[in-house]
């Protein structure tokens, strides 16, 4: 068994927390797991990616074309993640567009990005995680909405139980626990309705 989850987004969106929760939950489920992240310039609004591999994997990095799941926290970064997909990849993207600062060209339209992604993979889901997080009181919960969607839409939930992942949220985040759990459950129920 092996599950490759490729995460992409922008520094500050909570990707490393997201990956740490999956990692902790995998350990608590008795699974092998490795998480590789690129730090460095991520605080400065640059693109960030994180590789999560559960099960029989040795390499810390997912090869291009071999992500089983992509979770994109931003729609332009979703486009940049496409080389990691193959037709069987489950693709989950946040509908949010964050314009790259100081970019003077023409930005792709989110609708066109969705069409492009759908043309590459059989299963693509687009979630309004940002708006849901704002409704819950703070955009910071965006990552928990996406985590809920991941559990609703992929076989992660066959490997890690809901109780275990909720326990990992409590362990890893440790503050505003009820709000984070609420965001996770909201993401789960919204995405479950999409299946």
């Amino acid at each position: 068994m092996r599950l490759n989850i490729y995460l992409t987004g922008i520094g500050g969106q909570g990707l490393i927390t997201f990956a740490s929760i999956i990692g902790q939950a995998a350990v608590d489920s008795g699974l092998r797991v490795t998480v590789a992240e690129t730090h460095g310039l991520s605080q400065r609004g640059g693109a960030v990616d994180v590789h999560v591999r559960i099960g029989e994997a040795h390499s810390p990095l997912i090869p291009r074309g071999e992500a089983d799941v992509v979770v994109a926290f931003e729609i332009i970064e979703a486009l940049r993640a496409l080389p990691y997909t193959n037709p069987a990849t489950v693709f989950i993207a946040n509908r949010r567009l964050i314009p790259p600062p100081a970019f003077r060209g023409k930005l792709p339209k989110p609708e066109d990005v969705e069409v492009e992604i759908k043309s590459r993979v059989a299963s693509a889901y687009f979630i309004d995680a940002y708006n849901h997080a704002v409704k819950l009181g703070n955009p910071i919960f965006e990552n928990m909405v996406m985590l809920g969607a991941l559990f609703a839409l992929t076989r992660v939930k066959e490997l890690i139980s809901m109780d275990t992942v909720e326990g990992a949220i409590v362990k890893v985040i440790g503050k505003a626990v009820q709000e984070n759990l609420r965001a996770f459950r909201l993401g789960y129920s919204i995405a479950s309705a999409r299946r």
Binding site: P63, I76, F103
Partner: peptide
């Protein structure tokens, strides 16, 4: 055979001053 071609014309997102 792995398809790992980049999609053309993805706007770059370099790090910037905060």
């Amino acid at each position: 055979v792995v398809n790992h071609q980049y999609v053309a014309n993805v706007p770059p997102r370099p790090p910037v001053f905060c």
